[in-house]
Nucleic acid binder design. Sequence first.
DNA 1: TGATTAACCTGGTATATACCACCTAGGCTA
DNA 2: TAGCCTAGGTGGTATATACCAGGTTAATCA
Lengths: 251, 251
Amino acid sequence: MRDKRSKQDGDDEPSTRPRFLQIADKIREKIERGDLTVHDILPSERSLSEQYNVSRMTGRRALEALETEGLVYNADRRGRFVSPKRLNYNVSNMVSFVVNAQTNEFDLEINVIEAAESIADSRLAALLEQPEECDVVQYTRLFHSGNHPIFIETEYLIAERFPDFLDHDLRQSTAQILEKSYNTSANTGDIVIRMRGVQAHEAQLLNIAASHTVIELEQVIRDDKGTPFCFGRQVWRGEMAEFSAHAIVTR
Amino acid sequence: MRDKRSKQDGDDEPSTRPRFLQIADKIREKIERGDLTVHDILPSERSLSEQYNVSRMTGRRALEALETEGLVYNADRRGRFVSPKRLNYNVSNMVSFVVNAQTNEFDLEINVIEAAESIADSRLAALLEQPEECDVVQYTRLFHSGNHPIFIETEYLIAERFPDFLDHDLRQSTAQILEKSYNTSANTGDIVIRMRGVQAHEAQLLNIAASHTVIELEQVIRDDKGTPFCFGRQVWRGEMAEFSAHAIVTR
DNA sequence: TGATTAACCTGGTATATACCACCTAGGCTA
DNA sequence: TAGCCTAGGTGGTATATACCAGGTTAATCA
């Protein structure tokens, strides 16, 4: 298609920087300048390869680079689009996250993926400070904003303490349910945040490629007596997550 | 090299799962079983392609998938190796992080990349609650464990408050310097954690590919009067990071 | 009008090839 | 012995090609 570029054809300055990153840079600039804005469609792999006179695989790598950066998302076989802004999650404010998000510029929608009673495995039982194989209520929900998935949350509650919990409508803040119907509210939490590879079923729900990366947030939530009553795990699209906290140094 | 696989050749159950992920799965199992342990070398792209009778690009994709997962790291042109365990960073414990890490199983080493006096830009000045263009002391350090880079930290201190700061040896906990020489210690911090694309110079220091992803942690550190005196930014290899916090719900 | 279909678009996977830059180890030379 | 150098290994980039699977859309048919 085109001859091998050699050093002397004075087109670019950093001829060391790979071609696919140069192309990614140009697209990134367009996004930062505002030529392309949130949810706008990007050029396809094939059109990029024509435009820059490279092979499709090179155009693809440029787009993939922007994708792993999080600037761009990919709706399976429809094209690639500019990602929306991040959502800020304040870890000191667990209770009212859904309420906050709904009253702010984001309006979060919730899909209930699964809701069932089950039995705690040993790790879960230990975290909840319960005997092994105790009954738990578990539900998984997908949080999204206008069809754009943001994170998956799975929560486990001690069944005994929250009878008939699953009769409630789970498309709302569960903190509100707990407070109104069971007079229980979160007081402290132990939180862990890490980055890890996505699992196949998560990738499907979050609409990302199976070889991508997510942010996992796990928390044990305690009441005002310090007794744990909930374990939660959130799996975020990395580019949609931003966690803030106010730390007080312990000595 | 090999004929196109069709549905009827009963070799695998999930013939839908891409070949490169199947290969990645097998390697992942080896790591989880312990056949391969920390810092062991993995098969090369070329040897994988022979072993599984696929093209080099397919073997490569398998290894790259494990790399973005964080299970595997890549030492430029030497090969791919099994990643070490994560380091846990307790955000409520900022002061003594270096001390902690050095006394635990990890022994962290520090390289000073840069140390200089400079002038705060508007964002930094605002974060430090100082007038614009105030003098700051800034230094960048690379934290690693036995040649394995873990994170980069850049800190900015108000110069006026910490005279001759750069005369100290920066290959130690700066919290200790601040406490011993300036009678200042961290009391609270405002922290933000996010995942983002790595920048070229960071990628070089962290020894990762330019199209990868990192965890960024930014914090404004305040003394016991609530006055900010330090702004810090850490850029972590995602697979090496794990952040924990104890949250107290604010209402 | 409403449903079906077909053409065309998108990205997903996979092969085969080529050349480059860099690292390492082993052998050779001074 | 100390240093250099080369051969072979590794990943990095890039092209060209092929076919598949799913989404979109517009033409077609009942």
